[in-house]
Structure formats: structure tokens, C-alpha cells
Design a protein around this nucleic acid. Sequence first.
DNA 1: GGCCGTTGGTTGAGACCTCAACCAACAGCC
DNA 2: GGCTGTTGGTTGAGGTCTCAACCAACGGCC
Lengths: 164, 164
Amino acid sequence: MEPTRWLDEQEQWTWRNFLWGARLLLEALDRQLQHDSEIPHTYYMVLAALSEAPERTLAMGQLAEVVCSSPSRLSHAVARLEDAGWIRRTKRPSDRRTTLAQLTDAGLATLAAAAPGHVEAVRQHLFDRLTRDQVRVLGEAFEAIHAGLDPEHTRRLPDRDGRS
Amino acid sequence: MEPTRWLDEQEQWTWRNFLWGARLLLEALDRQLQHDSEIPHTYYMVLAALSEAPERTLAMGQLAEVVCSSPSRLSHAVARLEDAGWIRRTKRPSDRRTTLAQLTDAGLATLAAAAPGHVEAVRQHLFDRLTRDQVRVLGEAFEAIHAGLDPEHTRRLPDRDGRS
DNA sequence: GGCCGTTGGTTGAGACCTCAACCAACAGCC
DNA sequence: GGCTGTTGGTTGAGGTCTCAACCAACGGCC
């Protein structure tokens, strides 16, 4: 058992800024979307992803990857979006296991109505506050972060008592 | 109504990396804590904040600020932590409106047990993947972000139909 | 003292998310 | 055909979070 490598001053400061900033940012965006368009940000991403897909259609699995969501979360989300009439679910004929999600016209309209306000909020809270260089570094940093996390997204952790 | 200033290539790329990276990172940390210590990351922050306060005690309001939480969320959280025996709640004698939250010995022990694994995870998923410069810029960027968001955290948004 | 606005927290309902269990359709193999 | 394992999704229970409503204690003012 190695001794714990605690965070130094700068790391603590950075970590705290990240946690606060990310939380406030995501909350602000969620509130804006919820308030103006009655959609949570997660659902917005689903609609946006479908709108860019060929035929505005994607299999659940692919959609989950594109929006970076667990199958379960996506399933719940799409169920709700279907209730709202914004998405249609059908089975793929050639393999009746996979479910295809298609954005309806109503869904596209909702998305189109929500998009400008959302983008404006992202700009206002994020990009307007950063220099071009900061934006570049931010992108590179998070690319590195999620590159390390993505593959083993589902990897199993060792049991906490070591009796696994 | 100004025309929407859409995101350019780099901004989209950065935004996406941030969303994915932040989500995966926070999920990974939450899973690690949940798995090894059975506490969500939010609750961990509450315990950590109290552990650093004088007398291991803070008023709910101050605690909420320190952990960047809404009063409601904190109230629910502390209620649960009190059930677990990790926090004690009392009224301040000089002003019986304010509730004081104090970390118990059991709470401190839980925190001490959880901390090394958590810090290790933060290191592994975040700091080990970034250069010193990236860390610095990251800290500065998020400082700017939450500086702009913090004060008007509770500000009122205009009604979406403009009839307010 | 008694009213009134403010401050500090709590509560309940409803929404979203996680985890684990489940199910149905396919594919390989005998 | 009939097993068996795998793949693709769904479901339900339980937990956390949000929002709005609420309540109790204080402070100022008459």
C-alpha cells in the first residue's frame, strides 16, 4: 500500500474551481433549457444527436454512444421523449433486437426552438469568458481526460475489502 | 432579435470534449466512492468541508456556500448523513433559526477511510493525464467561469414568452 | 406588546439517474 | 430442431436533485 499522494496547493485549487465551475455551468444551462423549453439538457442532447443523423434515425446503442449515456438512462429518456411525441421508436426489420429511434417533425421543431437560447447560454457562460487559447487548452485537456475514461467506462472495480 | 451566433468548429469540439470528459470523470469518481465507501461524491464534499471547519462545525448556510449546493439539496443531504450518524444537527443558541452541522467522530472516521481512494481516483483520472500547464490553464478557466456564474446563481430568468 | 418583512432552513412532490435483474432475438453448435 | 451464450434494450426499485411551498425565529417599527 503506497502512501497517498495528496493534492498540492495548485491541484486543490484547480480541482475546486473545476467542480464549482462545472456544476454552476451545467446547472445554469439546465435551468435555462428547463425554463425556456421545458427540456433537461440531457434530453436536448438526444434530440440534437438524432437531428444530425441520417434519416434523423439512430439505433439505441449508437445513440447512447453519441450522447455518452448509459443504456438505461437513454432508455428512460427516450421513453419520455416518445410520450412527448418528439421521438418515434421502431424495431429494425433485419434484426428485431435493435430499436431505432427517429426524431419526429414535432421533435425537430422543439429542438429548433430551443437551440438558439441554449447556444446563447453556452456562449455567455463559457466561451465569452475564455480566451481563444484557454478554449484550445480546455478542449485538449478534456480530450485527454475522456480518452482515458471512455474505454473502461464499464470496467469492474475491485471489491473494496479485497475479497473478490 | 440578433441572429444566433452558432458555435464554430473548435468551439463545438471543445464543448463536446468538456461535456463528455466532465460527465465521465464525475461518474467515475461517484462510482468509486459509492463502491468503496458507499457515499455519493456530493456527500463526501459535505463531510470534507466540515472536517476542515473550526470545531468541525458550520451553519447550514455557510456549509451550502462552501460545498456550492442549494439549501434544499444540502438539507436533504445532511438529513441523510445525520441518519447515518456522521453529522449532528443543533440550533445555534444565540439565533435559533440557524442550524449548526457538526461532523461526528464516526463521520470523520468514514471520511478518513474514503479520502485516500478518492484522491487516488482524482489523480488517476484527472491530474495524471494533464501537464502542469494544462492544470494551470484549467484552473484559471474555471475560475473565470464560476466567477461569472456565482453571484447571479439565483437570479431570475425572464419569462419565456416575454409576458413577464 | 403586536404587526410585518426578512432570514435561515425544511419539507414533499415530482423528475432524473443508477444499478441490477430481466427479457427477447439472434448465432453457433450439436 | 433444440441448447447455449451473446447482444440489444427495457424495467423497477431506490436514491438524489429541483422547485415551490412552507414554517419558525428574528428585527424594526408603531
